[in-house]
């Protein structure tokens, strides 16, 4: 699925009264599967559209997105093989990725 479909899906979710947050790949090193600008839209119940990796870190990003919907704050996440916690979520490609997470707000 490509970025525009992700944002169309986000708009549909908002229109149906749901809360939504976005995750965006802002930086990659090494063999990261998705390039900067790739996006994921996450709904309050954890449903999502799009991708920010080959499936390795989506779970952690979805969790962080749900927190951002609750407190309204942005977040910067970092995943890489050098990071013990990151390894546990499984960025097995050997790459390093930074993700920006933000809630969709009305203001």
């Amino acid at each position: 699925m490509d970025t525009d479909d992700v944002l169309d899906t986000a708009q549909q979710w908002l229109a149906s009264g749901r809360k939504v947050a976005l995750g965006t790949v802002v930086k990659t090193w090494g063999s990261a599967p998705r390039q900067a600008g790739s996006q994921i839209a996450v709904r309050d119940d954890g449903a999502f559209a799009g991708s920010v990796s080959g499936g390795c870190i989506e779970g952690a990003v979805i969790e962080s997105a749900q927190e951002s919907m609750r407190d309204g704050m942005v977040r910067n996440l970092e995943f890489g093989v050098s990071d013990e916690t990151a390894w546990s979520v499984g960025l097995a490609c050997g790459g390093h990725i930074e993700i920006f997470v933000e809630p969709l707000i009305d203001a």
Partner: peptide, 29 residues
């Protein structure tokens, strides 16, 4: 991201206009 920004990006896509969204990674502005 503001709801209005999301709608504006989707509208630009439909109108085949190129847009760039700049976001401050510290504040979300």
């Amino acid at each position: 991201m503001k709801r209005a920004t999301l709608y504006a990006i989707n509208e630009a896509r439909r109108d085949k206009r190129a847009v760039v969204r700049a976001v401050d990674l510290a504040s979300g502005e």
